[in-house]
Write a protein that binds this DNA or RNA. Structure first.
Lengths: 108, 108
DNA sequence: TTCTAATATCGCAATATTGCGATTACGCAA
DNA sequence: TTGCGTAATCGCAATATTGCGATATTAGAA
């Protein structure tokens, strides 16, 4: 029915899935790569750097903010986007632990 | 239009997005966690372990196979599922590199 | 106040995903 | 051959996502 049954999974599994969603679309990967490689935040050039309409970019930014992996600090008339380091580190730790948890398989 | 414009992003960005999709749903996270912690493959108990219908689990397994992160070796009448180690390591390397690429931000 | 620039939101259309009952396909056993 | 057990696929319904034009919002500039 298109309705993910979040309630039947653990909080951790749902959080992993949410963090993964941040990277599960190439446009969002591109946004995060742009933000990660900057010393300072981007205050509006994001739309220029991406081959997508302003409304679409804004939508992806909203999703990234919902997940918490970026911040959008208002500096009128612009908004200043940058990586939200604590959540970025959470993602690093989470995927690191998860992907390190593979035991040796003597299989098939 | 719901059509992700894969052609306007780099192959690498699209691959990252695909690998992330493997973890972008709690049911798939649960499946991968189950497979990762086993010494041997699972030959059918997967449906019993998950609170989802057989058809639904099969659908998620199909997606994981498409991405390449699991294998499904036929051992009739069962199928023997396990982590596909090369792709798992690819994910580890990919997310590791990506999440390590954050430069110090002196921001906002 | 009015205008301007930047971003967010709305509303829509198209496509994708999720979930599952029912059916199908496939080997093997009897 | 038939029947059984297992997994894949089909077909459908419901919800989610993607994309974008148009509009709204917002705060400063003029």
């Amino acid at each position: 029915m298109g309705l993910t049954k979040t309630e039947i999974f653990t909080d951790r599994q749902n959080r992993i899935a949410d963090l993964a969603k941040a990277f599960a679309h190439p446009a969002r990967v591109a946004i995060l790569q742009l933000l990660a490689k900057r010393q300072s935040c981007i205050c509006g050039d994001l739309v220029d750097e991406l081959p997508l309409a302003q409304a679409t970019v804004s939508q992806h930014l909203k999703e990234l903010k919902r997940i918490g992996i970026i911040r959008g600090d208002i500096d009128p008339p612009r908004v200043c986007y940058c990586i939200n380091e604590p959540v970025w580190q959470e993602a690093r730790q989470t995927f690191g632990a998860l992907l390190d948890s593979l035991v040796e398989t003597s299989c098939c």
